[in-house]
């Protein structure tokens, strides 16, 4: 309790500033951006200048404006995916923790199988079957992520489920829904929130990766992964056009990771023997 009141470390402040900045961009981006996201305003791959701070892209559009406006789409999709996967994963995880042993085992074994396919490969399979569109993309990522959320939620819920106060409620005759929502959920919420940050980072990178491969968010919408793809050729000429949107992706993830790191370290204790180490 006490440590949470202490001043956050420098890294956490940096993280908070980054996250806050990009959140503002995502919400108010279209008002802040100097140019439109679609309009050709300069030459192809113009270098950075006072006019175009980060230069222009393959079609002569202002890169800075496209990054600012693209924040909404890029971050929004990852947030939507993660929220969806969290609802599914947490509900099923909680349900498994209060369900009979057989049901729990069925859930857990199925999830083991789903997890034995690497995420990107799984996403590629589904996208090849359905083609890439926004709803398919969001659903795909959410469904691929949900088993991972399930694993964490179930493990946390199982720890709580075996505690005596849950047993007391069970003996009292409370419904399973009560156990899930009133007894277990409030106790797994704090670790789940940091898990949300981590899962968001992961989904964010996967969506960016898919867009980069041309299988994610489709042009002409400005999205960071797609911008890297469109400008990838420029790098061979020593033009840094694809670096900027890639950097934006990295910054958001770093920011969130720094904040999550701080949150986790508040609850962590020093490990046993480190005094002598």
């Amino acid at each position: 309790m006490k440590s949470s009141l202490q001043r956050p470390p420098l890294t956490a402040i940096i993280g908070l500033v980054i996250v806050a900045t990009f959140l503002l961009l995502a919400i108010f981006g279209s008002y802040i951006a100097p140019y439109s996201e679609f309009e050709t305003v300069g030459e192809t791959w113009a270098p950075s200048s006072a006019e175009f701070l980060l230069g222009t892209d393959n079609l002569g559009r202002d890169i800075l404006s496209r990054i600012i406006i693209g924040a909404q789409m890029t971050i929004g999709i990852a947030v939507t995916c993660t929220m969806l996967s969290f609802v599914i994963g947490t509900v099923v995880g909680l349900a498994a923790s209060v369900a009979s042993n057989v049901v729990d085992q069925i859930f857990s074994r199925s999830v083991d199988i789903l997890l034995s396919i690497p995420v990107l490969i799984f996403a590629l399979i589904v996208l090849s079957a359905f083609g890439s569109s926004m709803p398919v993309l969001i659903l795909t990522i959410a469904l691929i992520d949900a088993p991972r959320v399930f694993r964490v939620a179930r493990a946390l819920a199982m720890n709580v489920r075996n505690l005596e106060f849950v047993e007391t409620a069970w003996l009292r005759g409370e419904s399973r829904w009560w156990l899930m929502t009133r007894e277990i959920l409030p106790n797994i919420l704090p670790p789940m929130i940091s898990e949300f940050g981590l899962r968001f980072c992961f989904n964010f990178l996967i969506v960016a990766g898919l867009s980069f491969l041309g299988l994610g968010i489709q042009p002409p919408s400005a999205d960071w992964g797609g911008m890297v793809r469109e400008n990838g050729q420029a790098i061979t000429f020593g033009i840094s056009a694809p670096i900027w949107p890639a950097l934006a992706i990295g910054l958001v993830t770093i920011g969130i990771n720094l904040v999550v790191d701080w949150v986790l370290s508040m609850n962590a204790r020093p490990s046993g023997a480190s005094a002598e180490l």
Partner: peptide, 20 residues
């Protein structure tokens, strides 16, 4: 019947829901 028999557990630290 559920009401008539109550249980008091061993570990006070885990027998009360810390969030209530």
């Amino acid at each position: 019947d559920q009401q008539g028999i109550q249980l008091v557990h061993q570990h006070p630290d885990v027998s009360l829901n810390p969030r209530q």
